[in-house]
Amino acid sequence: MSEDHDHSELSPIAARVRALETLLTEKGYIEPAALDAIVETYETKIGPRNGARVVARAWVDPAYRERLRADATKAIAELGYAGRQGEHMAAVENGAGVHNVVVCTLCSCYPWPVLGVPPVWYKSHAYRARAVIDPRGVLAEFGVTLPRETEILVWDSTAEMRYLVIPERPPGTEGWSEERLAALVTRDSMIGTGLALGPST
């Protein structure tokens, strides 16, 4: 355990980040206030609730689902979700006999406008390395077991294309409002490592 210190703690790696910030501010490349605004946006404003609204709309509105199929970027922008890392979106639909899973094998490409910044496991070596070669094993670790005959499609995200999984609408939710349905749509169900929650949850 560390001893008591009478001075402030700054880890060497945090000091490197401060050094970058100081240098780039002094050279006029960035403004600290702009950095704070970016952090606040991704900490509080943008997250998987956005994607859940897209999914719920697709569940209740067949015309919207069609538009999502035809041009996901445009259909998602209809709900006000656009911008950084959502410029080129594709929606991939789960259905009878098909389950989709998204990964970025090389780094951490992810659809920020609809899901926020990726969770730690999405960026991990284990997930990136195994999602393509053993998707069924990875899904099992997430507690998802699919019928043997279900085909699993794995989508490798890039800087040019980001994917949003449209999970299947849970049975027993007929007549539900979009808002109530959206609450069943988890982040993981939109990455493909989970399913939408059931009506009793």
């Binding site: 980040v17 780039l24 704070d36 952090v39 991704y42 926020g116 496991w121």
Partner: peptide
């Protein structure tokens, strides 16, 4: 594998993230 949702685990993660975004936007 599903810890509580926090965008950034450490303040320096958030700052490093924002630096890349801001520098990209500046071109």
């Amino acid at each position: 594998m599903n810890p509580p949702d926090r965008a950034f685990a450490e303040p320096w993660h958030a700052q490093a993230f924002a630096l890349a975004v801001a520098l990209h936007e500046r071109g």
